[in-house]
């Protein structure tokens, strides 16, 4: 198994109401190339922080330690892009950021040097803002990384709420085409052709009409299909889905999970599936990492985690799952008609 990324001793601390809150504590693990890897946890477990850290989308005010090492085959050179950190910092509250990047000055430097190429187009920054839903408010955190991959191109990110990650005043076609245009250097007409092909791949009914549609004209499930199309438009190596099906009803959720499974298999992508639902993750992932209070509690093959969990917390999560065959609480409570 070749690792796509190696995370070592990752620590993320947020500042909240004047005090520091550790969101991730000494987290270390590898993700193999082309595997389907699930990150499981309840609220406050740090699972979304981890996904954001891997994607380089942590808020600038967070304090980061440790390393995320990428082993991307034929990774395009890092200086071919401008991360949002090069863009002018307009928020006064972010003044503190620089001083926090203590143990990773070299990586920050490496990113900063990209500016020398003069290839910084503001559109690049805007673009990642659209595909990653809110990346405009974030900046790559100062994690020591080797060959920093680029969000939108090397990493596709699908968030829980497609209404928030899609631009409401851009057509679906423009949003997907922009990713292809920006990251693949395709002409606009080629990019639109690719957008249409992607809408077919994510099985949106009537892709021609969908190209011209605005997000509000689509259902929640359709919007999430569009968000997935935009996330994979540049052919990323890694697809991160952070609670990407949690806001959808059960039937649409199952369809989107099947779609993600198919796209990941067809394109040989690595999948990072972040979820609170261990049963859903078990249906999709080959390995599961269980997080609690910012710590990696247990990591193993899905069958092992589900059938013979080693940690009491994993067992508790499994026991708390209410499946269709679950013991009815009703009888335990002794309620009668």
């Amino acid at each position: 198994m070749t690792a796509l990324l190696s995370i070592r001793d990752l620590m993320v601390t947020y500042r909240r109401d004047g005090s520091e809150v550790a969101a991730l504590k000494h987290v270390s693990f590898d993700v193999a190339a082309s595997e389907r890897f699930a990150i499981i946890g309840e609220s406050g477990s740090g699972k979304s922080t981890l996904a954001l850290a891997i994607a380089g989308l942590l808020p600038g005010s967070s304090k980061v330690g440790g390393s995320i090492e990428w082993k991307l085959p034929n990774l395009r050179l890092p200086h071919s892009f401008a991360p949002p950190s090069v863009l002018p910092d307009i928020s006064p509250t972010r003044g503190e950021i620089g001083s926090l990047a203590a143990n990773s000055s070299s990586a920050t430097l490496e990113i900063g040097e990209g500016g020398d190429e003069g290839a910084i187009s503001p559109q690049v920054g805007e673009m990642s803002g659209r595909t990653e839903g809110g990346a405009t408010e974030r900046r790559p955190s100062a994690i020591a990384t080797s060959h920093m991959p680029l969000g939108g191109r090397d990493i596709g990110f699908v968030f829980q709420d497609p209404s928030a990650s899609l631009d409401p005043v851009m057509t679906v076609g423009e949003q997907i085409a922009e990713v292809a245009h920006t990251h693949l250097g395709l002409s606009w007409s080629q990019s639109y052709a690719r957008a249409k092909a992607l809408l077919e791949r994510v099985r949106l009914p009537d892709p021609d009409a969908a190209l011209r549609a605005y997000p509000h004209q689509l259902s929640g499930g359709q919007k999430q299909r569009v968000a997935i199309a935009a996330a994979i438009a540049a052919g990323p190596k890694l697809l991160i889905a952070d609670e990407a099906t949690s806001a959808l009803d059960a039937i649409v959720q199952a369809e989107i999970v099947a779609l993600i499974r198919q796209l990941v298999a067809e394109d040989g992508m690595t999948l990072l599936f972040v979820s609170h639902d261990i049963a859903l993750a078990a249906e999709l992932a080959e390995r599961i990492a269980v997080f609690r209070h910012g710590e990696l509690v247990e990591l193993g093959a899905t069958a092992q985690i589900v059938a013979t969990p080693r940690h009491a917390y994993t067992r508790a999560l499994l026991d708390a799952h209410l499946g269709l065959d679950a013991e009815p609480l009703l009888q335990q409570a002794g309620a009668s008609r």
Binding site: A254, I278, A279, A282, A301, A303, V306, L318
Partner: peptide, 22 residues
């Protein structure tokens, strides 16, 4: 039937997740 089929099932005795059900 669709709702029941769509509900995630946790099979705690067998080899879930290892087989590609594509």
């Amino acid at each position: 039937k669709a709702l029941v089929a769509a509900a995630p099932k946790l099979n705690r005795t067998s080899t879930q997740g290892t087989a590609d059900r594509q």
